[in-house]
């Protein structure tokens, strides 16, 4: 009887260990598949041409594999979306943790959660059918597919994430710290800007990096609203293509394993993976480097 229980316990522990191991296998599999196919890609296309070329035409002859247009498109989307998500997210966090009362929080937090829970395909639809027409009305030279519209939608989508991460950090500061300042006659603004902000600076920075990383990896919004023209330009009102946008566009067609298209897909995917991984590690590094303890 007891031997049976012990055996059962042993089997269960090993099974759970196996489950946990799946997460490690996932990472290894991601690295192997992305870099395996990329390796084949770079045997045909010199890595230098890939990284510095300014023309992206992997499917049209004459083929050209300069990834800069995709990279610039991606970074533009990341930049413009952060103009919305970072300040507004931070502002929401300050309001929630320093200004609002319990009742207001109870209403606002679910709204932000709802905003964060809406699928990106819905934001894509919103960008194309609502934001773009408004921009076009104000600036008629705007193209139907453009960076600005997609960026605004991504900004709204990532705003709740910034708000929630920053707010968690601010709420972790004990009230005794605030009360000390209030007792000296400080206003809420002075407490928020001179005490709360500096002591949560690392968490805020980390949240910002994560939000930018999310924007870089965001796919459906840019696939719908930002366009499919990999041109190297810096005009937010023009159509571009991002790395993720390219990947979706290519996948909509039928691509066979072993073709240059298939390998290109993985090369771009590997680059996307590397960029987001490095940013996530940076975010984590910032957080650990300088933790203020109370």
């Amino acid at each position: 009887m007891n031997k049976k229980i012990k055996q059962k316990e042993f089997i269960i522990e090993k099974t759970l260990l196996l489950f946990a191991g799946i997460t490690i296998i996932t990472t290894i599999a991601i690295i192997l598949t992305l870099f395996g196919e990329s390796f084949l890609f770079f045997r045909e296309i010199p890595i230098w041409d890939f990284l510095t070329g300014t023309t992206w035409a992997p499917t049209l002859k004459p083929r050209s594999f300069g990834v800069l247009p995709l990279l610039v498109g991606t970074l533009m989307v990341a930049l413009f979306s952060s103009i919305i998500s970072l300040p507004l997210g931070l502002g929401s966090a300050i309001y929630l943790s320093e200004y609002s009362n319990k009742k207001a929080r109870k209403v606002i937090k679910p709204i932000l959660e709802l905003l964060a829970g809406i699928p990106s395909i819905v934001y894509g639809f919103f960008a194309l059918t609502f934001i773009t027409p408004i921009i076009k009305q104000i600036l008629p030279q705007t193209e139907i597919f453009n960076v600005a519209s997609a960026s605004i939608a991504i900004g709204i989508m990532t705003l709740p994430m910034v708000a929630s991460l920053c707010e968690d950090a601010m709420m972790a500061i004990p009230d005794s710290v605030r009360n000390g300042a209030y007792a000296l006659g400080s206003t809420k603004m002075e407490v928020a800007l001179k005490i709360i902000l500096p002591s949560t600076a690392t968490s805020i920075a980390s949240a910002f990096v994560l939000a930018i990383s999310r924007a870089i990896g965001e796919t459906m919004i840019v696939a719908i609203a930002a366009g499919q023209s990999p041109m190297l330009n810096f005009n937010p009102l023009a159509s571009i293509q991002t790395m993720t946008g390219f990947m979706v566009n290519l996948s909509l067609g039928d691509i066979q394993q072993g073709t240059i298209e298939y390998k290109t897909l993985f090369a771009v995917g590997a680059m996307l993976f590397m960029i987001t991984l490095i940013m996530n590690l940076i975010a984590k590094g910032i957080l650990h480097r300088n933790k203020v303890r109370y």
Partner: peptide, 19 residues
């Protein structure tokens, strides 16, 4: 590893699934 996987863009999982 789990923390990092949580930050991997969903499209990358798509590539993993494809391969």
């Amino acid at each position: 590893n789990i923390a990092n996987l949580a930050g991997v863009p969903s499209i990358v999982y798509g590539m993993l699934g494809l391969a």
